[in-house]
Amino acid sequence: MPISRIAIGRPQEVTHPDALKAALAEFISTLIFVFAGEGSGMAFSKLTNNAANTPSGLIAAAIAHAFALFVAVSVSANISGGHVNPAVTFGAFVGGNITLLRGILYWIAQLLGAVVACLLLKLSTGGLETAAFSLSSGVGVWNAFVLEIVLTFGLVYTVYATAVDPKRGTLGTIAPIAIGFIVGANILVGGAFDGASMNPAVSFGPAVVSWTWDNHWVYWAGPLIGGGLAGLVYEFFFITHTHEQLPTTEY
């Protein structure tokens, strides 16, 4: 049972050099991802005279986020596991693949990375505002809440299938691109409704820098519930732990 493997961890864990290196890797990879993803939207808006909310803008956002996440996961996979997302970290925690204390360390690094990325974007673009996530016209808050759960479930389920499952074999080599692809595809699905965050850090960075918090809880609650459900479902139904648990660094 995955719940039986949930662990708090020891305080010494968060000060261990390996854990600090992993947190630094999460900070840098999240910074890379948010800078490219959020920056692509700002660039498209500038080039199209603030017309980013168009079909072409949605496609551009999907491609930019897919490519950026592929790189962000790849460059940190061998150090921290390439979570780049508090929802992925939470899904790993409820599945017993990371301790609570190490997960909190990852969360701090991811959120800081997103905030720094948005600050750098504002600084390097001459003060352009980073756009906080918001609901489209006609989309209710509970509609967006359910959408974020479903989209994030698909993302974290993909992470488990390609990166966590001990039976993944050579499939693990394409995990970063599979994870990037599912995010790009999900943006094409949900981007027109609520922005398709799937990642509390991606929502948190722009919200802090622009100080816009409308319906912000949706972009935390939805992804965390979706990620947690994906971790539990995959661990409970598809993973049989008959051998030594995989180290977190290999996750």
Rank of each mutant, 00 (worst) to 15 (best):
L121F: 11
H83Y: 14
A68W: 03
F44K: 12
T99C: 02
I79E: 01
I59C: 12
G81K: 05
Y106P: 03
L119M: 15
V75E: 02
I104M: 09
A64R: 07
V71S: 08
T99D: 06
G81A: 05
T99F: 01
V88S: 06
S56C: 12
G81Q: 01
N78T: 13
I108P: 06
A72D: 00
S40G: 07
V71M: 11
T30R: 10
N49Q: 15
A60D: 12
L112E: 10
L101M: 08
V94P: 00
A62Y: 12
F70D: 09
L31E: 09
V116T: 14
M42D: 09
L100S: 04
A114V: 11
V75D: 03
A52T: 13
L101C: 00
I98A: 01
H65T: 13
E38I: 15
S76G: 06
T89D: 06
A77F: 02
V115F: 04
L101S: 00
V71F: 10
I63V: 15
F33M: 03
F35A: 09
H83M: 09
P86K: 04
I59Y: 10
G81I: 00
A114N: 04
V73Y: 04
I63A: 07
A68G: 09
V75G: 05
R102P: 02
E38W: 12
S76R: 01
A61S: 15
L47F: 14
A64W: 04
S80T: 06
C118L: 08
G95K: 00
A60P: 09
N53R: 15
S40A: 14
A51V: 11
F70Q: 10
A109G: 11
P86F: 02
F35P: 03
G39H: 01
S74D: 11
V34W: 07
A117I: 06
A66E: 04
G39E: 08
F35T: 06
A61K: 12
A43W: 12
P55D: 07
S80L: 08
S45H: 11
T54R: 01
C118P: 04
L69K: 04
A62P: 05
G37D: 06
I79C: 08
L105Q: 01
A36Y: 11
V75W: 00
T48E: 08
R102Y: 03
N97Q: 14
A36I: 13
N49M: 13
G82W: 00
F67D: 10
P86G: 01
V116G: 12
I32V: 15
A72S: 12
G113S: 09
T30K: 03
A61E: 12
N78L: 12
L119P: 15
L69D: 02
F93N: 03
A61L: 11
N97L: 13
L47D: 14
V75L: 13
F90I: 06
S74P: 10
F70K: 07
A68H: 09
L112H: 09
A52D: 07
F90Y: 10
N53E: 15
L58P: 04
T99H: 02
L105R: 04
V75K: 06
I32F: 14
V94Q: 05
I98C: 01
N53T: 15
